[in-house]
């Protein structure tokens, strides 16, 4: 099976829609088991391991993050946060065999109670075709003002 550019683009749109609608079980199912979600702390950071990042999470951590959102004693989610992505049409930068790379500019809004914040960011997806379905192999999210002092960012851009 081959994958078209449009299918890759649709995949990115579907993913942010899942996040906005809180369909986390479906979202987790998009991931390959050894994938990592990386959000660098430094502008143009190249090392996720030996330097601090905002996020560098394996699937266990991502599951924990999602599970916690609905916990009976998750006080920072009472009331719950909501989020909203506005994305530009993804650039498809690489199509090699069953591996693909996209880059997508987004505005991400997260809100809870009276607070709302807007982040401008670029998401780089490494996607892979496994058993006939597209999956996220790795995702990197660079926040434009990654060096600013943030309040809580509780959901996932």
């Amino acid at each position: 099976m081959s994958v078209s550019k449009d299918q890759l683009i649709d995949f990115i749109y579907e993913e942010v829609r899942m996040l906005d609608e809180g369909r986390y079980a479906e979202w987790l199912a998009l991931w390959l088991p050894d994938g990592h979600y990386w959000m660098p702390l430094d502008y143009k950071q190249s090392d996720p391991i030996n330097e601090t990042s905002l996020l560098y999470e394996d699937l266990f951590m991502l599951k924990l993050r999602v599970e916690r959102l609905n916990g009976a004693r998750t006080f920072s989610q009472k009331p719950k946060s909501r989020c909203h992505h506005v994305i530009q049409r993804p650039f498809v930068d690489e199509m090699k065999g069953d591996c693909f790379v996209t880059n997508t500019s987004m505005h991400y809004v997260e809100t809870r109670l009276d607070e709302q914040q807007l982040l401008a960011l670029t998401a780089r997806h490494e996607l892979a075709l496994v058993d006939g379905n597209l999956h996220i192999a790795n995702k990197r999210v660079d926040i434009l003002n990654c060096d600013a002092a943030f309040c809580n960012i509780q959901l996932l851009p």
Partner: peptide, 23 residues
Amino acid sequence: ARTAMYNRMINAPTSIVGHDDLE
């Protein structure tokens, strides 16, 4: 690497443990 992991897991504005405390 362990130090960097501790820092991001516990003390980042994106950290679930940090969210617990700040609340």
